[in-house]
Design a protein around this nucleic acid. Structure first.
Lengths: 156, 156
DNA sequence: CTCGAATGGTTTTAATTTGAAACCATCCTG
DNA sequence: CAGGATGGTTTCAAATTAAAACCATTCGAG
C-alpha cells in the first residue's frame, strides 16, 4: 500500500501524509464522511467507484487511523465508517482544496456548491495563514527550517 | 491522464482539483517548486522518481496551468519550470497538509521541519477557517449549499 | 420460519499506470 | 570538437486499478 519512499528513509512532513491520503479516492471518501455518509453502500453510490477499490481505500483509511468502524447506528448489525479525530483533522485541507478549486476550476459565472456557516448560511471566509504577530503571510513570506541541523537550508 | 469521472458529468469542487493534483508526486513537485527548485534535474534529484514519471507529471502540471516553462534564468538554453498564479494558489493546501502531517504523523518528540515566518523566524500560526463574523468554525459548524437548486441538501 | 432482496464485501481477470533502465538528442565546457 | 552534463523518450516488467462476477450475511415481508 505504501509507495516506496523517495530516496530518503524518513519522509518529510508533506510526503508522510500523502502516503495515507495521496490518492484520488481517499479524500473524496473523507469529504463524503464529513457530509455525513457512513455506510459502505452510501460511499459507493456517491462516488461511483468499484466496490473492491472502495474496500481497499476504506481498509487503508482504517489502517491509518483516519476512519474507524462503529458497531451500528440504526440498530442493524451492519457496521459504519466514521472519521476519527485524525480524520476530522483533514477539514482545513479539504477547505483549502475546495477554495482552490473554486478559484481556478470554475468559470466566473459557473454555479458551484458553497461552504456556508451553519448558523446563518453565509459563505465562510477564505483560509488565511497568519504569522505569530497576526500578519497574513503568503508563500513568499515563509520558509521551512530544518529541525535542529546546523545545515544552512533545504527542502524536506 | 484524467481519471474517469465518477458517474456524474460535472465534477464537484473537490473532485475537480484532484484531477489535476490528485497523485502522489504532483504535490511534492509543487512543494519543491515553492522551495525554489526550477530545473528538471533538481526535481528529479530531490524527489528520487523516475525521469519518465517526472516528465509525465510536469507535462500534466503544465497542461493544467499549474506550472509553466520559462526560457532561462542563468542564460543557458535550457528551460525551467515555475509555478503559475494557479500553482501558487496551492500554498494554503500545502500548509494544511503539512500541519496535518505535523499533528498526526510525527511523534511528539520527533524533530520535523518547521514553516516559519521569514521576517523573524517564528513558526507560523495554525490555519483557521473563519465565518464572515470572524468566528473560527470547524467542520461541524459548516455545511455545503447547492448552487441554486431547490433541492434540500446533498454532497457534491 | 422461510424466502427474496438488500447489504457488504471478495475473487477473478483485463486494462491502465508506474517504475527502472537503457537509450538518445541537445547543450555547455574545455 | 570531444566529453560530460542536462533533459528528456522508449522499452519492457511489475504493480495498481477497474469491471464484473461471485458469495456470505442480514434485513424485511409473509
Amino acid at each position: 500500500m505504501a509507495k516506496r519512499v523517495s530516496h530518503r528513509d524518513s519522509m518529510c512532513g508533506v510526503a508522510r501524509p500523502l502516503d495515507a491520503i495521496g490518492d484520488w479516492w481517499s479524500l473524496l471518501i473523507v469529504r463524503d464522511a464529513f457530509d455525513g455518509l457512513r455506510r459502505f453502500g452510501e460511499f459507493q453510490k456517491s462516488l461511483g467507484l468499484a466496490k473492491n477499490i472502495l474496500s481497499a481505500r476504506l481498509r487503508n483509511l482504517l489502517a491509518h487511523g483516519i476512519m474507524e468502524t462503529v458497531p451500528a447506528a440504526d440498530g442493524s448489525a451492519y457496521q459504519e465508517y466514521v472519521l476519527t479525530e485524525k480524520g476530522r483533522g483533514l477539514f482545513p485541507l479539504l477547505v483549502a482544496l475546495r477554495q482552490w478549486g473554486e478559484d481556478f476550476f470554475f468559470e466566473p459565472d459557473e454555479a458551484h456548491v458553497l461552504l456556508v456557516d451553519r448558523k446563518n448560511g453565509l459563505p465562510v471566509r477564505r483560509l488565511e495563514l497568519r504569522a505569530q504577530d497576526g500578519r497574513v503571510v503568503g508563500a513568499e513570506d515563509t520558509m521551512v527550517r530544518l529541525p535542529q541541523a546546523s545545515h544552512e537550508n533545504g527542502s524536506a
